[in-house]
């Protein structure tokens, strides 16, 4: 949440600066299977966000002593590339923020993947933020869900989400970078629409009870749109399996 210093106007003439309505999402496109070597992969283009998700596994656990005889171990790694932001050159590798995001992303997939089918193995989920534009964590996990499905790893649902914020007193969906920096609140979430469960939930800002309730409702509404894009990506890759072949 930003300070008032240098704060740009975020709502002009009842609209967001980008021209979007309050519950509109930015342009969103997902491409499944963009990498050859990874077992599964996906690229997400969401606003200016460009995030690559790659999945390896199930495979042998390394280091070996981490092996769980009951289920597959999920390793999630979210990192921002040093060149990914509008600001100065970042430091490469994980920082405190990205370690925390990696942790909550890992919890999503511990729930989502049928981990008990693959005891003693490890599934690595890499999320590389190549260009950041606000909402990277929900975009990264949304892409990772597609990458897992592309890898043929059994999951309970496609999971996805959106971040709900509050700018100049108004609750809006899918914050961009400025809205995130200068807004009054941010609630990123990942959900399973099938079960109605929230699998990643973070919140930062100041919201009343009514606002929390509204934000949750906006999350599920946004997720429906995001899920369609995930299905579209997978359909594009797998539908050719169904169509009549060309000689």
């Amino acid at each position: 949440m930003g300070s008032s210093a240098n704060k740009p106007q975020l709502i002009v003439d009842g609209k967001r600066v980008s021209g979007r309505g309050f519950s509109d999402l930015r342009n969103l496109k997902i491409t499944a299977g963009v990498l050859k070597k990874a077992n599964g992969s996906a690229m997400i283009e969401w606003g200016k966000n460009r995030i690559l998700a790659a999945v390896y596994g199930p495979r042998e656990v390394f280091p070996k002593h981490m092996t769980d005889p009951r289920k597959a171990l999920i390793n999630a790694r979210y990192v921002m590339a040093p060149f990914s932001s509008m600001e100065e050159h970042g430091r490469s590798g994980p920082n405190r923020r990205s370690i925390e995001i990696s942790k909550v992303a890992k919890h999503v997939f511990e729930n989502n993947v049928l981990v008990h089918m693959f005891p003693k193995t490890m599934i690595n989920i890499n999320m590389d933020v190549l260009q950041s534009d606000g909402g990277t964590r929900v975009a990264a996990v949304t892409a990772a869900s597609v990458a897992l499905v592309d890898a043929g790893i059994p999951v309970r649902d496609l999971v996805q989400g959106v971040s709900i914020g509050k700018i100049e007193g108004t609750q809006v969906s899918d914050l961009d970078k400025d809205e995130d920096n200068y807004g009054e609140s941010d609630m990123p979430a990942i959900v399973s629409l099938r079960t109605g469960e929230v699998l990643l939930y973070q919140m930062d800002g100041k919201l009343t009870r009514v606002e929390v309730d509204t934000a949750l409702s906006m999350i599920f509404e946004g997720a429906k749109i995001v899920r369609e894009k995930q299905v579209e990506a997978l359909r594009a890759k797998y539908e050719s399996n169904l169509s009549e072949a060309r000689e």
Binding site: V104, H107, T195, E197, V198, L200, M203, K206, V212
Partner: peptide
Amino acid sequence: MVASQKSGAAGFKR
């Protein structure tokens, strides 16, 4: 509500 965090595999309904 000024901060919130979900941790662990379980999901929470709205």
